[in-house]
Amino acid sequence: MRDSEEFEFELPADHGDLVTVEGYDGRLFMVIAYQLIRNCLPEEEYNEIVYEVIDAYTGEFLEADGEDVEFVTDADHAAAYVRENPKPAAPVYPDWAMGVMKSLEEIEEYEKGAMGMAERKPTARELSSQLAKEKKAARKKRGEKIDNLLDMRIWAADMLEKTGNEEFGDRVFAIDAELKKLTDAD
């Protein structure tokens, strides 16, 4: 067993800083947490950083390897930076998604009858199955949205407590309102 040792980590970004993440071009993320991991293998030891970030405009949660994170601005200037750089109008997809999307479009064209085939009407069983799948997907999406809002609320409440900045309090109230809408829909 080893004695307690100190390990050095070089952090590209800290809590509240704005960053970009490789593969998510055009998107801006805020660091909400990070993990400092010391990997000890028989042959080698190395440090690793895993960031938890949220999209600065949509609040979407993402985990990113420290090597994929690039610092944009510090937490003190984050709000001003976001105000001065509005969200892009068109959705920005990761680089890898563009090839997949092109392939999906080709498949959909074929399935829609681009080859001159007549379209068949679905049976009652197929319609019922499709409706059940849609309801299940909607429940899953709602659950993911609630989880994301809860993560954002915890972060905003923590930042309010740490900084006393009323903007975080406003964000907590807005998130609570959105959560109420989602949970009252039951």
Rank of each mutant, 00 (worst) to 15 (best):
N85M: 02
A75D: 09
G113P: 01
E43Y: 09
L179N: 11
E8S: 13
S128N: 08
A80D: 09
Y110P: 00
K162P: 02
E134F: 08
F71M: 05
V31S: 04
E10Y: 14
I146H: 04
E44Y: 08
K112Q: 05
H15Q: 14
V19M: 12
R142L: 10
E166H: 08
G113D: 01
E8H: 13
K162F: 08
F168E: 09
T58N: 09
M117Y: 04
L36I: 02
R139A: 13
D151T: 13
P122L: 01
D25T: 13
I146P: 06
G113I: 03
E10M: 13
M1Q: 13
G26R: 12
D186E: 15
F71G: 03
K136L: 07
I49H: 08
E109Q: 04
V31Y: 04
M98T: 00
V31Q: 04
A33I: 03
E67I: 10
N47H: 10
I175P: 10
L62P: 10
D186S: 14
E108G: 01
E105N: 02
R120L: 05
D158G: 12
D55G: 07
K140D: 11
D158W: 10
R125S: 08
F71T: 03
K181Y: 09
P122G: 02
D68W: 06
V50M: 14
E144Y: 02
E166S: 12
Y46G: 14
S129F: 03
L179Q: 11
L160T: 06
M101S: 00
E63G: 05
D74F: 05
A13F: 09
L179T: 12
I49E: 12
K121H: 06
D170L: 07
I49D: 11
S103I: 01
A97F: 00
I107N: 00
T183W: 06
G164Q: 11
F173Y: 12
R171C: 09
A13E: 13
D3T: 14
Q130G: 04
C40P: 06
E60K: 14
P12C: 15
A157R: 12
I154W: 10
Y57R: 02
V53H: 05
E144H: 08
E178S: 11
A64H: 04
K180H: 10
E119F: 03
F61R: 13
S4F: 14
F71K: 02
E8N: 13
A80S: 07
P12F: 11
Y110F: 07
M152S: 11
V53F: 05
K133N: 09
Y57L: 03
D74Y: 08
A89S: 05
V92Y: 00
A157D: 12
F173K: 12
A89Q: 06
T163K: 06
E134D: 10
I146A: 03
V100L: 01
E48M: 14
K112T: 00
V82W: 04
A185P: 07
K102V: 00
L160F: 15
E70W: 01
T163C: 06
E134I: 10
A78G: 04
G164H: 11
Y81V: 04
R171L: 14
T58C: 03
M30H: 09
L160I: 01
K162D: 13
Y46L: 14
F168R: 05
E108S: 00
A79P: 00
A33L: 06
